[in-house]
Write a protein that binds this DNA or RNA. Structure first.
Lengths: 246, 246
DNA sequence: TTACATTTGTTCGTATGTATA
DNA sequence: TTATACATACGAACAAATGTA
């Protein structure tokens, strides 16, 4: 025994299996919403017992990359199901249940990465970017203005029509049309005073306080794929975050 | 087979074991930072196999109630270790690593629950409460003002000296002195304008924008134990939140 | 240093139960 | 009803980490 497994890397066997399955996911061998092979078949493929395989799958399920459905199979996670919309939507009414926003595309265009965008997206200064600006209405009220920057490199062929006519969320569009799977987000929130343009959209006076949310959306390997600044009128809505010990 | 287990409730055996272990934790049979009995002993006690017991423990470890240490044993989680301080501290510099705040007690006193406090803490209107006000300095700068409300019922014998002389975090004091184990928090963030008193503490002019964080801290069974409003000067610091798909 | 006991970690294999089409 | 797939449960064997004699 030399401690080396088939697909690189040391460590327990189940972690090796986990890495191999992660690679299959990254390389698109198994597509979102599709079932992966059955446990039996995967045991054969990786040459391990059920218990070991299940431990690998357990880890990927815990990471929310896979979803198990008894009697059906194990599926690759995605943003298609409606209940998953709210996954990365942390704005909620002060009281009462979450509501679904109505989204209006304000702007779509191309640009060059400024210093912030270049840093956040880990791309060269002045490289090509795509800019999207959205207004989100909640129960008829303007609540959020999103300013989104993408690396054109990663989203070749993106058009205003694609964004405007998307049947699902933006992140679902990233996945379906560009194979970009957003797995986690990193948000930082500040208090700011609203400027004239955004204030007008949100029905606020210049200088009124708003939340400024700076988000980086990440895919496999924590690679950044989207840089987004949101301004939120928190008069009726607020930013929600739940946390547990660890 | 009738589907009923010894300690109430239906469902899989490992969940029954999990419930029994949770009960032992709630009732203080196993104290924070102490080791629970070995797997072998617990198997005997609950009359299950290692695999089943481990699955129950796995769930409690995933909930961060227990921590495993190979060769040592399985321990009850706590807030004593320094790295755990930041668990519920979501304020970080705009750039650079997290820093530890210097905390000053501004006020300690007793009061009666107003409507908000009563609702958030799920206690009767006008019932006795404890009020704590803290100023937090980060690298010498005033950044946060915390206004904390506790149900006196749950924290009998709380004194200013206990708060002032606590060796660890406030949540560690709750645990050690009152057996109140904070397991999760629910935070809602709004943009607000600072008032005169808080503005003076934070070095801001009246009307300057601040974050207003409204936190409920919860123990077992999602019972609320603390209601806290924080006002944050986000000129150099910001609220951080990471999120993954699920 | 060494040896040993204890405890959790990993892996295997098998059997049976439950959900779905 | 039947076949398939995941879920639960058992137990055994060995590895790795830790503390102590």
């Amino acid at each position: 025994m030399n401690g080396w497994d088939a697909l690189g890397a040391e460590g327990p066997l189940y972690q090796s299996v986990q890495r191999q399955m992660l690679a299959a996911l990254e390389q698109g061998e198994w597509r979102p919403d599709e079932a992966i092979p059955s446990e039996k078949r995967l045991c054969d493929r990786f040459g391990v017992s059920v218990g070991t395989l299940r431990k690998a799958i357990d880890a990927l399920v815990a990471d929310h990359l896979l979803v198990r459905r008894q009697g059906l199979g194990t599926f690759v996670a995605s943003h298609s199901r409606p209940r998953q919309f709210f996954q990365f939507f942390n704005i909620s009414p002060h009281d009462g249940p979450r509501t679904y926003p109505e989204i209006t595309l304000l702007q779509f265009g191309f640009g060059k990465a400024d210093r912030t965008a270049a840093e956040k997206l880990a791309i060269p200064l002045q490289s090509d970017t795509i800019k999207i600006k959205n207004l989100l209405l909640m129960q008829g009220r303007p609540v959020i203005v999103d300013t989104i920057t993408l690396a054109a490199q990663r989203f070749k062929g993106m058009t205003e029509e694609l964004v405007r006519n998307r049947p699902n969320t933006l992140y679902r569009l990233y996945l379906d049309a560009f194979s970009v799977n957003v797995l986690r987000i990193d948000e930082r929130v500040r208090a700011a005073t609203v400027n004239a343009a955004t204030g007008k959209l949100l029905g606020l006076k210049v200088g009124d306080p708003v939340l400024e949310i700076r988000r980086i959306a990440l895919t496999f390997n924590r690679q950044p794929v989207e840089w987004r600044i949101s301004h939120v009128n928190t008069h009726h809505y607020e930013y929600v975050h739940r946390d547990v010990v660890e």
